[in-house]
Design a protein around this nucleic acid. Sequence first.
RNA 1: GGGCGGUUAGCUCAGCGGUAGAGCAUCGGUCUUACAAACCGGGGGUCACUGGUUCGAGCCCAGUACCGCCCACCA
Length: 886
Amino acid sequence: MTEIPKAYEPRDSEQKWYSFWNSRGYFKPRGEGPAYSITIPPPNVTGSLHIGHALTYSIQDALIRWKRMQGFDTLCVPGMDHAGIATQNMVEKQLRKEGLTRQELGREKFLERTWEYVNTFGGVILSQLQRLGCSFDWDRTRFTMDQEYVDAVYECFVRWWEQDLIYRGARVINWCPRCLTAISDIEVEHEDRPAKLYQIRYPLKDRPGFVVVATTRPETMLGDTAVAANPEDERYKELFGATLVLPLVGREIPLIADDYAKPEFGTGAVKVTPSHDLNDFEAGLRHNLPQITVIDESGRMTEEAGPRYAGLDRYAARARVVEDLEAQELLEKIEDYTVPTALCARCGTVIEPLLSEQWFVRMKELARPAIDVVKEGQVRFIPERFEKTYLDWMENIRDWTISRQLWWGHRIPVWITGDGDYIVARSEAEALEKANGRPITQDEDVLDTWFSSALWPFAVLGWPRQSEDLERYYPTSVLTTARDIIYLWVSRMLFSGIYFLHEFPFHDVYIYATVLNEAGKRMSKSLGTGIDPLEVIDMYGADALRFALLVRAARGQDIRFSYVENNRQKQVEEARNFANKIWNASRFVLMNLGEDVSKTEVKWVPSDRLADRWILAELNVTIDQVTRALEEYRLNEVAQTLYHFFWDDFCDWYIELSKSLVSSPEDTEETRAARSRIAYVLETSLRLLHPLMPYLTEEIWQRLPHGGESLMIASWPATDEARDDEEAREQMQTLIALITKVRNIRSEMNIPASSRINLHLATTDQAARSLIDENSDRIKRLARVEEISISDRLQTRKGEARDIVAGIEVAVPLEGLIDIKKERERVSKELARKENEARGLAARLDNDSFLERAPQDVVQQARQRHDELIAEIEKLRATLGSLGAE
RNA sequence: GGGCGGUUAGCUCAGCGGUAGAGCAUCGGUCUUACAAACCGGGGGUCACUGGUUCGAGCCCAGUACCGCCCACCA
């Protein structure tokens, strides 16, 4: 057989096996068996892989690989999102460097540039996902700007319009003066910022005096059309209906009664600016107030603000207004104040609420069934707590602003006729037809990016066509996504899926952990706090990265992930070391299968040996735990369980216990059987590990004798009740405890590893005796012992180190080399530990309430343990006595 | 202002009713021919704080403190 390198070298394996899998078509659905499907959250077309992506796609790939091995007809559809505003910003940034603006370039040229940009830099992330090992069906890759997808978007728009679920209206919306577009409520971020609260005097017209109003934005007063106070507010009862003179402007405005003014705030009077505040807008509608727009789309004052202010930036205008009010002694006071400031989630610019005509989706009706499917448990959130997050939002939902004053995106499928009619159509041709000869122009705006994302799970499967994929793979099985897009995306897929397909788009919504940096902050590439996953893959391998992430993927718990100490990633190193451990254990097995590996049958040959019975039982338990954990999305438990089984049980004990047989030069039925068994346990472990570490496991599997083409399409191990073996597990525990105790004595008594010792054991327990008898060779090997003797009780002998474990007395003759002082210390320590435990148990057993109320098996267990301890303590005291007093 | 998480060994985190676990780090010992990216052994924790429930509480309940996240039209 060929030489196997001493360490696992990821790079070659990764390339080799990825193209192998791909060329064999394993990433495609097999077309039979129950369906299991995932439409992956489409990354932004301009994005590149970051650790958060690495985590979510590792999870999804692990799930899909596991289900594939279980025999499901698995489909994982990848794709990209055109990411309207984000992508447009990127291109605009590029233009800025050339000293250009998009307006100068013009719409058509700008879109050409954007497509160019997308074609050059776009989709990088998809190829990066291939390096991660993702087994997605690349032939089905979708982009939200593909013609088919555009058709779906238009179909959706038209149908909602026809059902009166889309409307056009003037409303105060969130306007970003930098991006020059409306954005939806959830694209606004709030941040508390220190600012000022200004109290301004509004003089009364027909009598002396004034009403004082408070505002954080004095410049908007230029657009005031009323002042409001609460109808219950005694201070203003007399004044309702009175006319006020708006300072600086001179406009006469009424004092109105409206209960949105809260008496406890400031003076209880609030200025009303219907064009620049949502509340004021709504109050304005209630009271029929004029709407005067004083701030324009770029954040500058309009002509309507008056000649003294027109053209000024909103902040400059604020300063001038304050100055002017002060000059006229109309400023009552200015106090420091913290205001929750609305910011554009994309660029951080302060949002300007602006009265504007936009397109909206009416939400109440759409939301209702999407609330029900979650309440009724048809769609389930994991972890469960996010269900509440989702429901709270959905139950208080407001209409969705879907138009964006951008160029990159799905142009709104609405055409306007010369006489002001709106024609909504699936295409320009259809619109022309409907226009009946009237000239038409298409609405300038595009749709919110999330409008198209909302259709993802079914649009990628062919909707609105009645495609086979749709028939077979919808609804999908699970959506794995980040918690910050529960509102933006998850909710919208739910209501659109239910609306168009009459069925929810996925059964499970698994909210994965957020990856944080060392400071506990969300990892962000733009802030320079990110780690490049490709760098990590280059250094440690894709499997190591995957495992490092998955072993931390507790449900919903954030993951802190960072480079520490000279660019070393300790967390990935740990996983890489595990990969290497798997590699070397496999190397050991392979090296012992003989010249012709294929001559060995990988199978479980029944055996009475304790170690065999034990490892089979442990393997069975492991299969059960891992499968169950996968079913419940507890990926960390999957990883931890396998780590423990493979390293501690298989490597540290089973391989060591099997070594003499397996690596014996003889070729007998017995040694062949032992080799088959060890290969079997290894092979089964590889199957279990494959979803987490696909490359490494395939690399090894291919070197093992196997009947299949690839581990990727091998079957998932099943549990077998007949393999449960409590007795073997208990006996093995005793054996391990015994060996560990001897090693402990050796180490504490400074016995060199090279020197062989003898061992005297004593027990009256017949079962323990035969356990020792049958396994004496293994004890000798693992504890580095020359001779073992067993008797009923130990004779008192000088110069021995003594202890007791699991009821077995242990004595190691030290041939005069014993350091009495040291031995006394060691035994005292052991004695103290046991006495302490016994005391605790005695106290409990002394407590009548415990005896009465605790379950019988708990009491029984405590009693048994206590008695064992007492016996052991007695023996240890005798030992200590024989060592002489202090 | 409301809601949700977190607080466990020096670090990163599991555990979530029966008197504490892992990896790393640390200390001591090993080239024991699969693996020094390893092996063997050790030390290290009043499980944030205060009350309560319970025979028994990191684990359940109430409250406090600090950290983080989400939501929010109080000018």
